[in-house]
Every structure is written in structure tokens, then in C-alpha cells.
Design a protein around this nucleic acid. Structure first.
Length: 282
DNA sequence: TTAAATGTTTAAAT
DNA sequence: CATTTAAACATTTA
């Protein structure tokens, strides 16, 4: 579920509470989810937390690291007394009793507990030497981060393909971190039809698009990520982000375009829901 | 009952 | 070869 801003939000929040703590015990509840030697991390201290695209990486002493991919329904929840930090796919587990039936791994720290939950089991946790984690094929194949790529490089990478522009900016090997929500919203901002073959979009327009991608991602981070529509109870507890209140097109089928009032159209591209304004994005 | 869900990979079809 | 589509992973909710 989560895209770059959601993972970034989790990173920023966990950094504050986990850095310096010792991981005392790991309980793995679903072995396919957790790969590598979990025991090796016990007794190690958290040095820092970083993010690459949609992957969260916790670095430990003894040159060990642990990488998380949330896929569609992963979430990390830290609980320490009254302090509760929840990020990722919003479900009742954000506020409910933990562990839950979706809990796949439990990390007991010197202060507090961290739960990795994943309803649909698409996510993974990989544990290993920092060097090996850094060299994971998945990470090696990733394209540049939207905030790091130069406009010129972005144009070159994107223009190579004749696939629809939306599919291309969501291709993690072209540009990493952009998922369905922010791809839809960035294209609306840039006033580009999602179906347009990437190679046909003028370079100047692509540069605008990159700016808009950064704009919506920045906004996502500012609002603490998106928490999706079914998260009524989240706000009550102050958990979860609020980007969903700022969706331009995502999940707004039939609702008026924020610019011209034309109803938002939903089509399918590469099997994903695609939302746009037929008026503003011809 | 059917559709869809913030992701990625793989095989098969075009 | 480039690209598209479908299916797969497994579960919940509208």
C-alpha cells in the first residue's frame, strides 16, 4: 500500500524513538515474511533508519541491517507505554490490541515493542549484513529517487519508452518511489493524460511533471502520508496521515475536477485504477 | 456476488 | 524486441 511519502513518514517517526535502542528479542510469526537470520540481530543496537524508494532499512551495530517492504498491506506499529506510532496500511490494528492475527514479526526493544503486520502477506522483511542488504537485487534495480534525479536525466529515462506515461513513472526501474496515488495526482497537476505515450510528451512538459511529482510527494510527507478512506477511527487517535484529504484525482471517480468541475474519469492502465480529468488532461 | 485495494513479479499473448 | 495483459501472492471491504 504505502508509497514513498508513507514510508518516509514511518522513517521519520521511528528514527526518533528507535535510534540507540537495543533489540532484545525477535519473535517471527510468519517465516516466509521474514528472511535471514533473525537471531543475529538480538542484542544489537539501532544505529539509524533510512529509506530507499518504498523500502525502509534499519541499521544495527555489528554491520547488520533489516529491510522492510510493505507492499500493499504492511504496517509497522511501535508501542511504548502511552506512546504509539503507527505507519503503513491503515487498519484497525493501528489502534487495536497487539499482536493481532496480522502480526508477522514482533521486535522487543530495550524500550517498547515494534510490530510488523501484513494482512495480505505480500510484504517482506530481510535481515542480513548491511553490505548484503545494500546489494539486494531489488534495491540495485531501482531507478533514482524523485528528489535526486536531475530534470535532464528524468527526461532521458522517461522518453525511452512508448508505454503510457503513468505506467512509466510508476516503473520502479525508471523512477523509484512513485505509486498509484501520487502518479495519478502528479499527472493531474501537470495536466497530462495518463495514457499518453511517454516518448510523445514534450521534454518541457516532462520537466513540469517531475516538479509536480515532487510537489505531491512533498505534500504527502507534509501531511504524514495517506491513510485511505476506510480509516475512520484513525483520526480519533491522531494516528495516520491526512494526504487523503488532499487527493486531486485518486479515488474521486465521478467527483468534480478541482480545476474545472468536470467529473473525474476512471480507467484501467496496466491493471491499476487510473483517475484523471478528461477536460484538463486531454 | 463482484469489484477493487497505496505493490511487484512472472508468464503468456500481441 | 517492446509492450500489454493476466495471473499470482492472500485478505478484506464496499
Amino acid at each position: 500500500m504505502p508509497e514513498l511519502p508513507e514510508i518516509e513518514t514511518v522513517k521519520l517517526q521511528l528514527q526518533k524513538v528507535l535510534t540507540g535502542l537495543t533489540l532484545q528479542k525477535i519473535e517471527v510469526r510468519n517465516y516466509p515474511t521474514v528472511q535471514g537470520n533473525a537471531k543475529s540481530l538480538e542484542g544489537q543496537q539501532v544505529i539509524g533508519i533510512r529509506r530507499r524508494a518504498k523500502v525502509l532499512i534499519i541499521d544495527f551495530t555489528s554491520h547488520l541491517s533489516m529491510a522492510f517492504h510493505f507492499k500493499m498491506t504492511g504496517q509497522l506499529i511501535y508501542v511504548n507505554g502511552d506512546v504509539r506510532i503507527a505507519g503503513g496500511h491503515p487498519t484497525e490494528d493501528f489502534v487495536g490490541q497487539l499482536p493481532s492475527v496480522h502480526t508477522r514479526a514482533i521486535f522487543e526493544f530495550s524500550q517498547g515493542m515494534l510490530y510488523f503486520n501484513d494482512q495480505r502477506l505480500f510484504g517482506w522483511v530481510k535481515i542480513g549484513k548491511t553490505e548484503d542488504i545494500n546489494e539486494l537485487k531489488f534495491l540495485q534495480n531501482l531507478g533514482p529517487e524523485p528528489f535526486d534525479v536531475s530534470p535532464a536525466d528524468f527526461v532521458v529515462r522517461v522518453s525511452k519508452s512508448r508505454r503510457p506515461i503513468k505506467v512509466v513513472i510508476m516503473d520502479q526501474e525508471v523512477l523509484s518511489g512513485v505509486g498509484n496515488i501520487y502518479a495519478n495526482d502528479a499527472l493531474w497537476e501537470a495536466e497530462i493524460n495518463p495514457k499518453t505515450p511517454a516518448a510523445q510528451v514534450p521534454a518541457a512538459k516532462l520537466e513540469v511533471l517531475l516538479e509536480k511529482i515532487k510537489l505531491v510527494l512533498t505534500e504527502g510527507i507534509k501531511y504524514g502520508g495517506a491513510t485511505a478512506a476506510d480509516a475512520k477511527y484513525i483520526d480519533l487517535h491522531g494516528l495516520g496521515g491526512h494526504y487523503q484529504d488532499h487527493f486531486r484525482t485518486y479515488d474521486r471517480t465521478g467527483k468534480p475536477c478541482l480545476r474545472c468541475k468536470t467529473p473525474i474519469t476512471r480507467i484501467e492502465l496496466a491493471g491499476r485504477g487510473t483517475y484523471f480529468c478528461s477536460q484538463c488532461q486531454p
